[in-house]
Design a protein around this nucleic acid. Structure first.
Length: 274
DNA sequence: CCATATGTTACTCG
DNA sequence: ACGAGTAACATATG
């Protein structure tokens, strides 16, 4: 479910949940598949740790713990975090529970079990493969110019590459390309400086809009995005390209096309995106 | 049964 | 080396 705006929305809801400053009192693992480090040490290491602060890098959530540990969560396609009050038996697709000294329980759900939880000491090397954060105030698209000019990939594939730029997924890539009026299959190195400038402005705008709308919630079931209070986002009401197959382009009324590009369903206006 | 799904990675082929 | 395409991970929905 999550691209950068959804993970950021989740982060905002976690900040409201008085989780920062709390202590982990117990850890229940119902399914070890989602853990990357062996489980006996995992639970033991986490108990009595303080959650000092929570942050985000790309599509990863980072819980900074006492004693220099970091709990890092990637939700992949259908991962979900939920905060509850009462101890209860594991629900369907619930793979892990963190009990907190605030009497709250933070649970990890994942229908498809692609999500992963990492326990780390060294964040820097873990994130070393990631490109820059597009919404970082210090971000400047000019640092990416050499790569774009050199790249013989289609622009959509480049934008989806987390080592090029962090945080974009299938939805926001299509939204940004629509906003910038660029065809997803356009060769990266063929983009003009002006187009690149417009594209990065569009990326920021699309992501920020997603955050302002508290995420894009598609679908109807548990795989639908919601924050830790099960509150849905409303950015799906404002999408211009993604999911709008055969609907009129909001700019020029041409019907939106859908094609498999970069192995993903891609939505674009064949008339105004060139 | 078939296609689809907000992500990532490993692999093959040209 | 690069890039495109495919499969895989695991499950649900239409």
């Amino acid at each position: 479910m999550p691209e950068l705006p959804e993970v950021e929305t989740l982060l905002h809801s976690l900040k409201r949940g008085e989780i920062e400053g709390s202590y982990i009192t117990y850890v229940k693992v119902f399914n070890t598949q989602i853990l990357t480090s062996p489980s006996p040490t995992f639970e033991k290491t986490l108990i009595d740790k303080k959650i000092e602060r929570i942050g985000r890098r790309a599509k990863y959530l980072i819980f900074s713990l006492s004693d220099g540990y970091f709990l890092v969560i990637h939700l992949k396609m259908t991962g979900h975090l939920s905060l509850s009050d009462k101890i209860q038996k594991a629900q369907k697709h619930e793979h892990l529970q963190f009990g907190l000294n605030t009497q709250k329980i933070l649970s990890f759900f994942d229908q498809r079990k692609f999500g992963r939880i990492y326990l780390l000491n060294d964040l820097k090397s873990f994130f070393s493969h990631l490109g820059p954060e597009p919404l970082d105030p210090a971000f400047d698209y000019k640092i990416l110019l050499p790569k774009i000019k050199k790249s013989k990939r289609m622009i959509k594939a480049l934008l989806l590459d987390q080592s090029f730029i962090a945080g974009l997924g299938n939805i926001y890539t299509d939204e940004a390309l629509w906003e910038a009026k660029i065809h997803p299959q356009k060769l990266s190195s063929s983009l003009s400086l002006q187009e690149i400038k417009i594209l990065f402005k569009a990326i920021k705008k699309s992501l920020q809009q997603g955050i302002n709308n508290r995420g894009t919630s598609l679908g109807k079931n548990r795989s639908n995005f919601s924050d830790i209070y099960e509150q849905f986002g409303k950015n799906q009401e404002f999408l211009n390209a993604y999911g709008r197959f055969n609907k009129p382009c909001k700019r020029c009324k041409t019907l939106i096309k859908r094609e498999k590009i970069a192995q993903r369903s891609s939505y674009f206006c064949p008339s105004c995106q060139r």
